[in-house]
């Protein structure tokens, strides 16, 4: 019984490394939103108000 758990843990930890090799798409999109907000916001905000 214990052996099964150990094998499962090793397998999941291995899968974990595989996951990290893949590109974290959702996290990248969030990072993009945050950065674009930052680099555009100071100037964008007043302009957005004017256009209202």
């Amino acid at each position: 019984m214990n052996k099964v758990w150990i094998v499962l843990m090793v397998f999941l930890l291995g899968a974990c490394q595989t996951v990290n090799v893949f590109f974290p798409e959702a996290s990248a999109t969030r990072a993009a939103d945050k950065i674009i907000d930052e680099v555009w916001q100071p100037v964008n905000k007043p302009t957005a108000k004017e256009s209202k």
Binding site: M1, N2, W5, I6, L8, M9, L12, L13, C16, Q17, V19, N20, P24, S27, A28, R30, A31, K34, I35
Partner: peptide, 23 residues
């Protein structure tokens, strides 16, 4: 012991699920 292993599993899996992009 079983619960301990299960706990370790959950913790390690959560740790790897948080693969966030560093900016």
């Amino acid at each position: 012991r079983k619960y301990l292993v299960l706990f370790a599993l959950v913790v390690s899996f959560n740790a790897c699920a948080m693969a966030d992009i560093e900016v």
